[in-house]
Design a protein around this nucleic acid. Structure first.
Length: 432
RNA sequence: UCCAGCGUAGCUCAAUGGUAGAGCUCCCGGCUGUUAACCGGGUUGUUGGAGGUUCGAGCCCUCCCGCUGGAGCCA
């Protein structure tokens, strides 16, 4: 596409030429007879220098009056300059103000999280937020790329569903032509069906959790990638997860150095993310916790301090598998060696970022699934279609789900999940 | 749902129970290499709300509202 203006990201290929930029005034410093005008256009930022001796009086006054976040069109000469962080500067020849902004709320000074969240629609323009969401985009692209290279087909799961996936978790309810419907909390069961149709599949869909969780790790609306593969057993499932995580980290390190620098992310821990990841059993994890001084009984589920103790013992993500049947979902395949545990795994990220993936081999035996449903008091009628998958050409199959926002937090080194998505939906918060 | 902390200027925060302040934003002036620029001057208040104790409450007490973090649950 041929445009009559250039993007800042491409500025390096226009050195020595006069170009037009369209964007916003990010920041300004002035020194009497010279203005330093920081422009941004979404692709990057560049400093424009406007000297009084080099422009006419009207232009210089425009430079003096232009305010933070005014939309502008600027024409100038591109130069290389060692003093500029990006290596390039613009000698401004003319400036047109498309709209003069008055009293932009987010100043270059400090602000609290409540104020910034009230102004999330504007906060997105700030460099840190901009960088994190660009990394998010790269992560999403890397995931799509990985699955397609591995022969997975994207089969979206529905968001409006007639029943709860796992029954226990709180769901958002809505009205569907007079019938109750629920916003999906996972696409997993639906892609077990598409996996039987296409072999290897994934879905990249929002998931909704109405739990009253109020921490820096929780959203009520989050994005999940669920993958499912026919004929994959527990070991292949973990291998696939490991491959995906490595591909994502590698891609971000390759494409997002500037963003990681803006985020002040230490990339050394990320450079170490290479397979194979350690694999320990739930039993070993319990022993590890108790040895580390974080008490836990065999049979209890891990809490936040246990996550930290487990993940803190490794410099790569770690799989914990073979959880007691009692603390996991009804559809997980029991371990043939020890039916009191299931062939399910959680993957913990490094540096205390917690669980990012949960996966398991699913029960493929019809009678066993029916028995487990009865034990867990899962009603048959709404799940008849799910049981059918075990009735018509059932095969061993496995899958997993990865939380996008937690992955973004981990890779970007963010301290709060609200910065990992443009418009976070948190407990009782839905503005803007 | 439970626990903890916090609500003072547009923003970030001060203020022994005794006259409500600073920095920044913004406005005016100065400065030709600034990087959250700097220097000088100026504008800015129903101290979240209601009630109470007190000669006197931003500060103490009660209730309510809002915000932030954590627990549980999870990704």
């Amino acid at each position: 596409m041929k445009l009559d203006f250039v993007h800042i990201a491409d500025i390096g290929s226009h050195v020595g030429r006069e170009v037009t930029l369209k964007g916003w005034l990010y920041h300004k410093r002035s020194s009497g007879k010279i203005h330093f005008l920081q422009f941004r256009d979404g692709t990057g930022t560049i400093q424009g220098v406007m000297a009084k001796s080099e422009v006419d009086q009207g232009t210089f006054e425009l430079g003096e009056g232009v305010t933070q976040e005014s939309s502008v069109m600027v024409r100038g000469l591109v130069r290389e300059d060692k003093r500029a962080p990006s290596g390039y500067e613009l000698t401004v020849k003319s400036l047109e103000i498309l709209q003069l902004t008055q009293d932009y709320p987010i100043t270059p000074k400090e602000h609290g999280p409540a104020f910034l969240m009230e102004n999330r629609h504007l906060w997105l323009r700030s460099s840190r937020q901009h960088a994190a969401l660009r990394v998010r985009d790269t992560i999403e692209q890397a995931i799509h790329g990985f699955f397609h290279r591995e022969g997975f087909i994207h089969t979206p799961a529905p968001i409006l569903t007639p029943t709860a996936c796992e029954g226990t978790t709180t769901l958002f309810q809505t009205d569907y032509f007079g019938q109750p419907a629920f916003l999906s909390q996972s696409g997993q069961m639906y892609i077990e069906a598409t996996a039987a149709a296409f072999g290897k599949v994934y879905t990249f869909t929002p998931a909704f959790r109405a739990e009253k969780s109020k921490t820096r790790r929780h959203l009520t609306e989050l994005w999940m990638v669920d993958a499912e593969a026919s004929f994959f057993e527990h070991a292949e499932n973990m291998q696939c997860q490991e491959g995906m995580v490595c591909a994502v980290v590698e891609r971000v390190l390759n494409d997002c150095q500037a963003e990681l620098k803006t985020l002040e992310r230490d990339t050394a821990p990320l450079e170490k993310i290479k397979g194979p990841f350690p694999r320990i059993s739930y039993k070993e994890a319990v022993e590890l916790c108790n040895k580390a001084g974080v008490q836990i009984e065999y049979g209890e589920d891990f809490g936040a301090p246990h996550d930290t103790a487990i993940a803190g013992s490794f410099d790569r993500p770690v799989f914990v598998d073979r959880f007691p049947t009692s603390i996991k979902s009804f559809y997980m395949q029991p371990d043939p060696q020890d039916p009191t545990v299931v062939l399910g795994s959680d993957l913990y990220a490094t540096e205390g970022y917690g669980e990012i993936i949960g996966g398991s081999q699913r029960i493929h035996d019809l009678d066993l699934l029916l028995k487990k449903m009865e034990e867990h008091k899962v009603p048959y009628e709404p799940y008849k279609w799910y049981v059918d998958l075990r009735r018509y050409g059932s095969v061993p199959h496995s899958g997993f789900g990865i939380g996008i926002e937690r992955t973004v937090c981990w890779i970007c080194g963010l301290s709060h999940i609200r910065e990992s998505i443009p418009f976070p939906r948190m407990l009782e918060k839905i503005y803007p």
